[in-house]
């Protein structure tokens, strides 16, 4: 990371000690070079939802009002499923995989014996998880296009938003994983991601939640869905800065906690 950018100067001190997190990404890329299919297994879930909506559900629901215009239900849901696929990819990688490397395979102990430090491990692993989520998002986008559901070229604008969702969820995922004590603790992962998936204005607009809308807005995925949906439908608003801000804040906190915890757990 270049040391004179704004991003560098606002980064928390622990992250500024990072030197070459890209080597951690490189290591993972070499591992998955052999088993590329594993990378995209998790993208099927949103795809199946999409197909179910496309096949019948959409016809029952009809059109949805969004930003002052009426759009096809499938068109409304597709961006939200794409956002969810970014979350899934990032969460799968940053929980189970990182737990295994942290507690069992001692992969990080070996990295920390080299010039790499805790911040490199955290940044590298989170970047990798983010990229894995991004692969899900792109595969999902390809499916949308194949089904003739991609809509306008605006959908490409949603890709950076997917990266940001991946970054936020990977960071929080890794931070929480460092606190997990056994595999049983991972039962909590779907218990958290499933409600996020269902209740982040994914399947119906925020207005449908009535007085409970504020709870939905607490969901990090809600901000991701709003960003991806706005971008892919070509609807910009000032609220998008809030969404970006929330996801960036989560990423920063998650990254710092993850780096600090790797240090506490392994450099003792």
């Amino acid at each position: 990371m270049s040391r004179d950018t704004l991003l560098w100067r606002v980064a928390p001190p622990i992250l500024r000690s990072a030197r070459r997190p890209q080597r951690v990404v490189e290591r993972n890329a070499i591992v998955y070079r052999r088993t590329p299919m594993v990378l995209i297994s998790g993208f099927f879930e949103p795809l199946f939802y999409l197909l179910s909506i496309r096949i019948g559900f959409g016809a029952l629901v009809g059109d949805v009002d969004f930003a002052g215009r009426s759009i096809d239900y499938a068109e409304f849901v597709a961006p939200a499923l794409m956002a969810s696929s970014a979350m899934n990819g990032a969460v799968y990688d940053s929980t189970m995989n990182i737990f295994f490397k942290l507690r069992y395979s001692k992969t990080y102990d070996a990295m920390l014996a080299s010039p790499l430090g805790a911040a490199d491990v955290a940044l590298g692993e989170i970047a990798w998880a983010m990229l894995r989520g991004f692969v899900y998002s792109i595969s999902f986008l390809v499916c949308l296009a194949a089904l003739g559901m991609a809509g306008s070229w605006w959908i490409l604008a949603s890709l950076p938003a997917c990266l940001l969702i991946g970054l936020a969820f990977a960071s929080v995922g890794m931070a929480l994983t460092t606190y997990m004590r056994s595999w049983a603790d991972f039962d909590w992962v779907p218990a958290i991601t499933l409600p996020l998936f269902l209740f982040s204005a994914t399947f119906y607009p925020l207005s449908s939640y009535g007085g409970l809308a504020w709870i939905v807005q607490l969901s990090p995925l809600y901000h991701g869905v709003a960003l991806v949906r706005g971008a892919s439908l070509g609807v910009a608003s000032w609220g998008m800065f809030v969404h970006v801000g929330v996801l960036l804040a989560l990423a920063t906190v998650g990254l710092s906690v993850a780096a600090r915890r790797v240090e506490t757990l392994l450099l003792k």
């Binding site: 080597r23 490189e26 992969t107």
Partner: peptide
Amino acid sequence: NLDGELTLLDNLIVYGRY
């Protein structure tokens, strides 16, 4: 703490890259 997900050769190469 060898890397069980890599071959012997890759274990060394990846470590050198660190």
